[in-house]
């Protein structure tokens, strides 16, 4: 296990591969671990990092920092400490929101951004998560029997501090990322699952408010974990995005999703 101390608190992370660094940021339900298939996929060309937010996985429990801002600063401290400069950020749910806000606050440190199942506005967060009020193993309580389909999530679900979920969801419900995204001058891919029970895809008015550099994709059959449900398709899309950036026409299997989103 790899770990560093940031402002007196332990942050667990893992890294794989050599090359240009990139960073994976996890969701409210889970930890760094479910990024393993994507880390392996990209490790031939990149140094892939994935960390645990405070209160998740093996990172310390630091209730005072369980906010979107707290996690944005955790990412900044992590990159400072690791000597990481400008990088691609790939975030999922909570991690996607943190990635968007981080890019807005530190645009010089983000090369491109992929946000998976990430609410642009708080109202996209569906009831099982938006109304979660605490208790052991939030992933089990929120996903129910579906959790057993996601072994990588289930394995570490019990480590989550429920307060981290409650507090960060509370700040997320009040958030509107469209303004943050509007000012970003970098390629942003927003990927959604058409069957996601946790984060609903954005509505048309929200989509219409997005700038040309922000591109929404929909995986019609996907739920909340497209990186686990259809790993090959997800990894191919991620790799294509890393290569082609905002050349959306060059990204494979794009048409089927684009038609549905715009």
């Amino acid at each position: 296990m790899s770990a560093i101390i940031l402002e007196s608190s332990l942050v667990h992370y893992e890294a794989l591969g050599r090359g240009k660094p990139l960073l994976f940021l996890h969701d409210w339900l889970g930890s760094w671990r479910y990024w393993v298939p994507s880390m392996v996929e990209l490790s031939s060309s990149y140094r892939a990092y994935a960390l645990d937010f405070w209160g998740f996985g093996d990172s310390d429990k630091v209730p005072a920092r369980y906010t979107l801002n707290g996690y944005v600063e955790q990412v900044a401290l992590f990159m400072d400490q690791m000597g990481i400069g400008k990088i691609p950020l790939i975030g999922h749910g909570l991690g996607g929101m943190v990635a968007c806000l981080f890019a807005a606050r530190y645009p010089e440190r983000v090369d491109l951004l992929m946000a998976v199942c990430t609410p642009l506005v708080g109202s996209q967060i569906a009831r099982p998560l938006s109304t979660f009020s605490g208790g052991d193993n939030p992933a089990s309580r929120i996903l129910g029997r579906k959790l057993s389909s996601y072994q990588e999530v289930a394995l570490e679900a019990g480590k989550t501090d429920a307060t981290a979920v409650v507090s960060s969801v509370k700040t997320a419900l009040e958030e509107d990322l469209t303004e943050a995204l509007e000012n970003l001058d970098l390629p942003v891919m927003m990927l959604y699952g058409g069957q996601d029970p946790i984060v609903q895809p954005p509505d048309r008015s929200t989509l219409d408010s997005l700038d040309y550099n922000v591109y929404p994709f929909l995986l019609a059959e996907a739920q909340h974990y497209p990186m686990l449900e259809d790993t090959n398709k997800f990894n191919r899309l991620l790799r294509d995005f890393m290569i082609h950036r905002d050349n959306w026409e060059a990204i494979q299997v794009k048409e089927e999703w684009r038609r549905r989103m715009r």
Binding site: M1, E14, R18, R33, S43
Partner: peptide, 13 residues
């Protein structure tokens, strides 16, 4: 690269 990958998978995963 393959050695690192195997170590990562067997050790970490």
């Amino acid at each position: 690269d393959i050695r690192d990958l195997i170590v990562f998978i067997l050790q970490i995963v």
